[in-house]
Simulated scan of single mutants.
Amino acid sequence: MDLMLTLVSGIAWTVVYVEAIRVGLRDRTYAMPVAALALNFAWESTYAVRELSVGVSAQGVVNVVWAVADLAIVYTYLRFGRAELPEFVTRPLFATWSVLIFGTGFAVQWLFLAHFGMHDATRYSAFLQNLLMSGLFIGLYTARQGPHGQSLTIAVAKWLGTLAPTLLFGVVEDAPFILGLGILCSVFDLAYIGLLLRPRFARVRSLPAPSR
Rank of each mutant, 00 (worst) to 15 (best):
G24T: 05
W66L: 03
S9K: 06
T76M: 00
A58D: 13
H115L: 11
A72G: 02
T96D: 08
L93F: 09
V64K: 01
L113G: 03
L93Q: 11
L52E: 03
L71I: 14
P33E: 09
G135T: 00
V56G: 08
A12Q: 12
T29M: 05
T6A: 13
A58N: 10
Q59M: 13
R50E: 14
V18E: 10
F88E: 10
V16Y: 08
A36W: 02
M4A: 15
L136G: 05
A121T: 06
Y17R: 04
F127Q: 00
D120A: 14
A67L: 06
F106I: 07
A107V: 13
L3D: 12
S125A: 13
F106E: 02
I21F: 04
S45P: 09
Q129Y: 02
V18L: 11
A107F: 11
V89F: 01
T104I: 12
T122L: 08
L136P: 05
H115C: 06
M4K: 06
R91G: 05
V62C: 07
L93Y: 10
L85K: 12
V34P: 02
S53E: 10
I138K: 02
M133N: 00
A107T: 08
Y77P: 09
T46P: 07
T96A: 14
A58W: 15
D2I: 08
Q59K: 14
G117E: 08
D120Q: 13
V74Y: 01
V23E: 05
M32K: 06
A114R: 14
L131H: 00
Y17E: 08
A12E: 07
V16T: 05
V18I: 12
G135S: 01
A31P: 04
G24K: 05
R22M: 05
V108W: 02
G55M: 06
M118V: 15
Y77G: 05
V65K: 01
